[in-house]
Design a protein around this nucleic acid. Structure first.
Lengths: 236, 236
DNA sequence: CTCAACCACTTGTGCGGACGAGTTGCGATC
DNA sequence: GATCGCAACTCGTCCGCACAAGTGGTTGAG
């Protein structure tokens, strides 16, 4: 059975929907807290909590003594495309998987996983296509203990993406990802697959569980002519 | 005259100090809300607000029915090195500045600034050195209206960094930065300065004021063999 | 011994009220 | 007309209380 979300979350949703529908346009003043209390039939504590949370998320702006004002849907950092995340998130097409099976850990992967070089791992190499052109070469490295009992070592395409698969089969939860981006020449194999030896963005990412343990390593080669990584951040 | 910070902030500071001093070690259970109420002489509302804010910032973890537990000082994403930010933040050495003066806007810069191609801009080209080796080529593009009255168009090195200079002279405030990273071959000039034609990370960043206007454009060439950009983010 | 009920604790959410402080407009006064 | 003061509004903070819900240990019945 499921539960009703808390009231302050319902209030937030109500206001967000009115902003997205255009009922409250950017620059408009929101109804005052007391008005919202009457209108929505909740206590001021609840309204204030909802409004302060919305302000923290960037939906609205609150000015002491004047009112609360609409800013609009915030461009949250979550919407930015994270290449390593989409790699673990997307399902696979029939022609995507190149190899899947047991290999000894290369040095740089072993270091990130905290195991000895040469330790057997499950490696899964795939390509991503855009309009029939290979647009990225992706390799996922998973320790045996996490891969055992899963379909990661089988060359059949995974329907639901690696994250879903690992979560449902092994109850592994992804918490955060560390990405390391550099520019390099493609390896000979990558150059053949991509059909060019122009520079690539090399992305090396570690996927962590809530306790900080490294669950897997993702390695990507993104041709520089096709990919631009975009990121927005606040200044101090 | 100054004001006392709100009580919930005082409670937050008290707990943060106890965590940093080691009095509360990671993994420890914090005093319960009722205990803190008695100990600090404030209402539970205040304690709860402080604890929930600390939890949002990653200092502690709260578990329904069990208690609040210390996680430690959060490693905030702000500590990550942002190449475009350090470019505007650092002072310049005597041998850093290559050129500074008026040039027509190239197409890709004009588009980011929202002006016509060829509009006169102030451009400032510099190199960053690490152990006497040139490790990056940096170009800053500033509209005339913002550069006028500043020293940005003079080849003399700026002591305090571009952000400080623009803020004190023209009262311009930096709010957020959008970075676009790609991999490319160095231009002929960049290759000569860097002493190599290996792939570089091309960073193109826009610096925005609080209203979202673009104040300047920063363009960087970072040799892939010397730079790795690191980034940590939460999974949904 | 096993297990369920219970109790004592924890945090999560919600209410109403209170007071402070910033903003704005209006009217009385000069 | 200009200015001051006040009233009415806004948000910011804080309190005490209440109840729900999750956790863990104890206790007593079987």
């Amino acid at each position: 059975m499921d539960f009703a979300p808390p009231k302050y979350a319902q209030v937030m949703r109500a206001i967000q929907e009115r902003i997205e529908s255009g009922e409250y346009a950017p620059g408009d003043m929101l109804p005052s807290e007391t008005q919202l209390v009457r209108e929505l039939g909740v206590g001021r504590t609840t309204v204030v909590r909802a409004l302060q949370t919305l302000a923290m998320q960037g939906w609205i702006e609150r000015e002491h003594g004047r009112g609360s004002f609409v800013k609009g849907r915030p461009e949250s950092a979550a919407e930015i495309v994270r290449p390593s995340l989409s790699t673990t998130e997307q399902g696979e097409n029939a022609d995507a998987v190149l190899e899947a099976g047991r290999v000894p850990a290369p040095r740089h992967v072993a270091r990130l996983l905290g195991v000895a070089e040469g330790t057997p791992l499950i490696a899964r190499k795939r390509v991503a296509r855009q309009a029939d052109v290979i647009s990225a070469v992706e390799t996922i490295w998973v320790p045996l203990e996490h891969a055992i009992g899963t379909d990661l070592d089988k060359p059949e395409p995974l329907r639901r993406g690696i994250r879903q698969h690992l979560q449902s089969v092994k109850h592994l939860r992804f918490d955060h990802i560390t990405e390391r981006v550099s520019a390099r020449k493609p390896t000979k194999e990558e150059a053949e697959l991509l059909g060019s030896s122009n520079p690539v963005l090399g992305v090396l990412a570690t996927v962590h569980d809530p306790a900080g343990n490294v669950l897997m390593v993702v390695s990507l080669a993104l041709p520089g002519s096709l990919h631009v990584l975009e990121d927005v951040f606040k200044v101090s």
